[in-house]
């Protein structure tokens, strides 16, 4: 039983860190613009699918990954420039619908470019399972865990210690005030989308060897990433990571200890409970409402 429990936890943490990576992208854009970008899952899919295509075209994996990340960042930037920016001043819900439209659009583009098939990326360093105290992990899971941890540290450092990061945060707190102190809000927003898209693409490339990818892969990952970001407290990158891990572990424990069929229901029931007691998520800002 203890080994079993350990395996459930190992599984949960692996799956959870995937959710966390996607959630991080949600948090980034929300931080800069107060918009929840429902195309975030599609960035993840785009990163993985582009890498697959480049790999098939003969590029080595590392180079394909870098190019795919840059291309996805470009897509993020274009999305901000041509879909979000012209709608400045629209209500939050209208903006959400625009991002949903963008998600459907991106899925449609990938469908036309690369078809409906499932694709796998080769694992970065083989797939000989790693044993520890009776539980096993794939080397790729360690990559996911390691890079998630690294990105978390980087994102945190970016917002807390760099001028650019602080400027981004300022845009979220008060756009007009940010403009007044000389921050180019427009450039900041584009930057936020590009960064978040790159983050998503990176996540997609990391997890594709484990989860495979297809033009529809972003839907589920986007949903779980969104949940992670909200449970953790939207706008808090650390919260998104905690939320992702929590969700992953809950699903895994739910499947292992209670019922595998109902595991999603169990996980979301827990999420509801969290929100009922902490209405702004686990680590959300407790802001006062302006009247």
């Amino acid at each position: 039983m203890p080994e079993q429990l350990l395996q459930f936890l190992a599984t949960g943490v692996t799956v959870g860190s995937i959710y966390a990576l996607v959630g991080l992208g949600f948090a980034l854009i929300y931080n800069a613009s107060d918009v929840v970008n429902f195309a975030q899952g599609e960035f993840v899919m785009l990163g993985a699918m582009t890498t697959v295509a480049l790999l098939n075209a003969g590029l080595p994996l590392a180079l394909a990954g870098v190019v795919a990340t840059l291309l996805t960042a470009l897509v993020g930037l274009l999305l901000e420039r041509f879909a979000i920016e012209p709608a400045a001043g629209a209500s939050v819900v209208s903006t959400i619908i625009i991002t949903i439209g963008a998600a459907i659009f991106l899925r449609g583009v990938v469908l036309l470019l690369w078809g409906k098939g499932f694709h796998a990326l080769p694992p970065f360093t083989g797939d000989a399972p790693i044993q520890f105290w009776g539980a096993t992990l794939l080397p790729q899971s360690l990559w996911v865990l390691g890079i998630t941890a690294l990105l978390v540290v980087l994102v945190r450092a970016f917002f807390n210690h760099t001028l650019l990061g602080k400027a981004l945060l300022a845009c979220s707190f008060n756009r007009n005030a940010a403009q007044l102190v000389g921050i180019n809000v427009r450039v900041m927003l584009r930057l936020a989308y590009a960064l978040s898209a790159a983050l998503g693409a990176l996540a997609g490339i990391l997890v594709a060897p484990i989860t495979f990818t297809s033009y529809e892969a972003g839907v589920m990952l986007g949903l779980k990433g969104f949940s992670a970001a909200i449970v953790g407290g939207i706008g808090n990158p650390m919260g998104a990571v905690a939320g992702g891990l929590l969700l992953g572990v809950l699903e895994s424990l739910g499947a292992g200890l209670i019922s595998s069929g109902y595991k999603d229901a169990i996980a979301f029931l827990f999420v509801l409970m969290v929100l009922f007691f902490e209405p702004t998520g686990l680590f959300g800002h407790k802001t006062a409402e302006r009247v």
């Binding site: 079993q4 395996q7 799956v15 895994s252 499947a255 292992g256 595998s260």
Partner: peptide, 18 residues
Amino acid sequence: ESYGNKDTDMTAQLTKIR
């Protein structure tokens, strides 16, 4: 055991089967 068709990991179910 059962899983969701879009799930990305079934080790929990298999661990239970073992």
